[in-house]
């Protein structure tokens, strides 16, 4: 039954002609045309929205997910990464590869490779890191002509961490924001972050 009620070409044409307005009111037409042209003319005198990048740098918001980097601990100036490989396991496109080096007091990462050309910039690695070792920067300027330069090893990652400005998000901050609160959430947020 349903198959016979579908539209035939005659019905298409009939519907089309029934829906068309005459459009013969000249004044309406002229006014509409002039109104559209006035809109374009108004924009002629508005300031253009172009930002003259790269001469004028763009201000990135606090939470910008840019390049990835490994950081050092604030007080001891040691590498923060303990080679636990949680980031390697959570990464959806599996771009991180870590080898652990066992030490006496704490572990280290022997090698840490991150394939930035395949990275999704989803920030999941930042979220799971127990020591806030891997973070994202407020910059993405790493365009290169050779893809091998985007295969970041540990030294490169540390260097990026020292060169650029760090984003707001670290593992502990994200986990505290998400989980049920230890203290009232609004006070916590006001203490931790700067306005975006």
């Amino acid at each position: 039954m349903l198959g016979s009620e579908l539209q035939t070409v005659e019905q298409v044409r009939a519907l089309r002609d029934a829906r068309r307005t005459d459009g013969t009111n000249v004044f309406v037409i002229v006014r509409a045309i002039l109104s559209a042209m006035r809109m374009t003319a108004m924009n002629l005198f508005r300031k253009p929205v172009t930002v003259h990048y790269p001469e004028k740098p763009r201000t990135y918001p606090d939470r910008y997910r840019g390049l990835l980097a490994l950081v050092y601990e604030k007080d001891t100036e040691e590498e923060a990464c303990i080679g636990c490989r949680l980031c390697e396991m959570v990464c959806p496109p599996a771009v991180i590869k870590v080898e652990m080096l066992k030490g006496e007091k704490r572990n280290y990462a022997k090698t840490f490779t991150l394939e930035l050309y395949a990275c999704e910039f989803c920030e999941l690695c930042v979220q799971v890191c127990p020591t806030d070792a891997i973070v994202m920067m407020k910059s993405f300027d790493l365009a290169t002509a050779d893809r091998r330069e985007l295969l970041l090893d540990k030294d490169r990652l540390h260097a990026i961490g020292l060169q650029h400005e760090q984003s707001w998000a670290t593992g502990n901050k994200l986990r505290d924001m998400q989980g049920p609160p230890k203290m009232a959430r609004t006070e916590h947020a006001a203490k931790e972050e700067t306005p975006a």
Partner: peptide
């Protein structure tokens, strides 16, 4: 409203 933004603890492992 005020309150937590997730009913599960913050993601710690995959």
């Amino acid at each position: 409203p005020e309150g937590p933004i997730s009913s599960r603890p913050g993601l710690k492992s995959v």
